[in-house]
Simulated assay, not measured.
Amino acid sequence: MSHIKEARTEESLFQPARIGDIEVANRIVMAPLTRNRAGEGNVPNELNLKYYAQRAGAGLIVTEATQVSAQAQGYANTPGLHTPEQVAAWKKITDAVHEKGGRIVVQIWHTGRMSHVSFQPDGKAPVAPSAIRADAKTFVVGEGFVDTSVPRELTLAEIPGVVDDFRQTARRALEAGFDGIEIHGAHGYLLDSFLRDGSNHRTDNYGGSIENRARLLLEVVAAATAEIGGGRVGVRLSPVSPVNDSSESQPQPLFNYVVEQLNKLGLAYLHVVEGHTGGPRDNAPFDYEALHQRFDGAWLVNNGYDRMMAREAIASGHGDLVAFGRAFITNPDLVHRLQHNLPLNVPFSDAPLYGGVGEHGYTDYPALTEA
């Protein structure tokens, strides 16, 4: 999509588009938003169904990050897609979104070192490229916010199993009715931590050079595309975001290479976080257009976009789609509000962004009645 010459205006934000094999009604994307509200066994529930169905007006919904295995969990009450019960529960959600004319992909992740022993099978240490603890915290029920655990280095013998977890989850995503998947290659989680020299100190074929550090991400994406087709696969990247103790000494050559290699796989889209996730867009120098020019699929931009910025991004060709995060939390009818330049809801002061019980702050934000 990115390099096809097409006439665009600011109104193109609200017009249909094609993302790989997925037809969408508009170019507004609901960004993945971890809300920590899955039920027992990390199974989505009826309240999750209502939440996503309310937001089906988005051109594309990207779900909250969802575990590819039990080992992949790093936070409380985040959903999985690795058991039959989880697949069946997600199927109800995708059916509800499709009934309203929406499109929905599942973001799949392995949290890697952003985890705690209490989430790991048999209380084992989390896995990471190297045994370096992330200077970060996670929430453990009954304990509150705690330091992430010291991870152990993922062995060479274990790596094919991780790749296969992503492959199988891609297949399960289609079984659950999703239109596709987004592979979480950002924010210091397992795939991103392999990319970066701040967290990857390996000396084998998965460490050292850019080519070696990118190997796991590329193997995962290749396996997923072989399973379900590249036209239903997206990847999220965050080149210079420092969240979750992410650091890289040479981000530009690293991500130039990563995008060049991903482009060979015929992906539906790349989802690029510009700047510091949820923070400044200019926290570090980086040439995003250099990445954009290396990719032939749809280009999804993210981080701090408002109505005016989104319209300009689409009209100028800076992006093919624009993701909104927190605005979708508080405005289930965000597309309608943006299209008609209507005011947005203010976040409830007494409702948490993460976790919570019941509808308050989750499914009770009001929608405007369309004329």
Results as ranks from 00 to 15, higher is better:
183 I>Q: 02
135 D>C: 07
219 E>S: 10
185 G>D: 02
179 D>Y: 06
226 A>E: 14
86 Q>I: 09
207 G>D: 03
112 G>I: 13
143 E>I: 05
127 V>R: 07
261 Q>A: 08
243 V>I: 15
135 D>S: 12
173 A>N: 02
298 A>W: 05
251 P>D: 09
50 K>R: 13
327 A>Q: 15
184 H>V: 09
334 L>Q: 06
38 A>L: 04
286 F>H: 07
241 S>A: 14
195 L>S: 04
256 N>H: 12
89 A>F: 11
287 D>T: 03
26 N>I: 08
71 Q>G: 02
232 R>V: 06
274 E>R: 12
261 Q>P: 01
39 G>Y: 02
100 K>E: 08
255 F>V: 06
344 L>Y: 01
280 P>S: 15
211 E>P: 01
110 H>V: 03
205 N>W: 04
84 P>L: 08
218 L>R: 08
327 A>D: 15
213 R>Y: 10
117 V>A: 08
239 P>V: 07
303 N>S: 01
130 S>N: 12
358 G>Q: 11
30 M>L: 14
59 G>P: 07
141 V>P: 09
68 V>G: 01
184 H>G: 11
102 G>T: 00
206 Y>S: 04
76 A>V: 15
90 W>K: 00
169 T>S: 06
367 A>Q: 15
28 I>R: 01
11 E>P: 00
296 D>N: 12
86 Q>M: 09
12 S>P: 02
152 R>K: 11
56 A>C: 09
313 A>E: 01
185 G>Y: 00
294 R>G: 00
26 N>F: 07
64 E>S: 07
111 T>F: 12
143 E>P: 02
251 P>K: 07
117 V>K: 04
264 K>S: 10
306 D>K: 00
173 A>R: 02
122 D>A: 12
204 D>C: 11
25 A>W: 01
84 P>G: 06
123 G>N: 11
311 R>H: 01
346 V>Q: 14
298 A>C: 13
136 A>L: 03
302 N>H: 13
217 L>H: 09
220 V>D: 01
369 T>E: 15
61 I>M: 04
227 E>C: 03
173 A>D: 03
174 L>D: 07
161 G>W: 01
332 P>R: 03
28 I>F: 02
320 D>K: 09
107 Q>I: 08
308 M>K: 14
288 Y>E: 00
78 T>P: 00
167 R>C: 11
59 G>S: 10
181 I>Y: 05
128 A>L: 09
37 R>H: 05
250 Q>C: 07
169 T>N: 01
